[in-house]
Simulated scan of single mutants.
Amino acid sequence: MKLATHRSGRALAIAALAATTGLVIAGCSSADPGSSSSDESFTIGIVEQQLANPFFANLQQSAVAAAEEAGLDVMTAESQSAGDSATQVAAIENMIAQGVKGIVLDPANASALVDIVQRARDAGILVVTVNTSLEPADAADASFETDNLAGGALMGEWAKASLGDAEPQVAMLDYDLSDKTAGARHDGFLEGFGLTDDSPEIVGTALTESNVETGQTAMENLLSAHPDINAIYTINEPAAQGAYIAISNAGKEDQVLVTSIDGSCAGVRSVQDGEIGATVMQFPSRMGELAVEAIIDFVETGEKPSGVIDSGTTLITDDPVEGVESEDSAWGLENCWGE
């Protein structure tokens, strides 16, 4: 286990326990964290998903930075793989034992963490989720996340307006629609375009694994069956990048509009290069900052946040259309996340 070098005296004491639990401790104050006074430090916990994913890494980095800027001590932990709730449960158990005042949680499993979150809340700890909420959402005090329905709607509105008078021939490159995020993005795109799953304008659908390889394969199959496709929805930017490879190989770069969502720097560069027509940027750093601010407010005032709080979305395109607010790829590259 790695321990951060900027730790308070109390964080050093916690480190002995953390060595057996995979926790990382950081901080910059030696004040007694048991006090809720605004000029004294306290400890918060940040529990993320696997940090090899740049989205999760950016979210945690922003939360840690916001906490340290406020003079707080921080305990961090990450899941080891997709869906790894066991590591997160163990981390929260240790955070409860160490008396953290609040926990920022990006749940690896929406239902498996409900019981441990309730234990934390019963101990007087504010628990806010980021990126995705628990099931039910009110199992945590609040959630700071992307409104994926609204993000999908931006994609659909732009695609419809960009097609103009052309008859829509739309393909959907999805991920498992039982996934809350995937379902919301899919439904939002259809809503924004003015379609339903049964609309004849939807000429083909395919499931991907949200990566380049399956995006390319899915698009190759769709183009083979439906060569007149002129607009596609993709679950995320890697799937869109794979789809574009298939489109380019088929010589249909000028025929097919590609839409996506995420706002990674790689995705924005694909917009700049003309591979993706438009992508919707989400803001993991804002999620982390808002979550930490909510915990600080709770400790200082006793006021709790509630509900699902939208961390914002922005459409990125170099081909703007009337009636759909957007920013260009230059702006996107200044505000994107990842590499």
Rank of each mutant, 00 (worst) to 15 (best):
T313R: 10
D328G: 12
M287V: 04
E325R: 07
I295D: 09
A240M: 00
A278Y: 07
N249M: 11
G251A: 11
P305L: 04
R269T: 13
D328I: 12
G323F: 10
E300T: 13
E327T: 07
G274H: 09
P320G: 00
A243Q: 00
V258S: 02
V308C: 02
A294G: 06
V258Y: 04
K304N: 07
G263E: 05
E339C: 02
N335H: 15
Q241G: 13
E275I: 05
S270A: 15
W331H: 13
W331Q: 04
S270R: 02
G263I: 06
Q255W: 00
G288K: 11
D262W: 03
N335I: 08
Q241M: 14
Q255V: 05
S248F: 04
Q255C: 03
A294S: 15
E293M: 03
S285C: 06
T259D: 03
D318M: 09
I295S: 09
V271D: 05
G323I: 10
I247W: 01
D262P: 03
I245T: 15
I296H: 05
P320N: 00
G263C: 08
I276Y: 10
A243K: 00
A246M: 05
G312E: 13
L257S: 03
G302H: 08
L333N: 08
D310C: 11
T279E: 14
P284K: 10
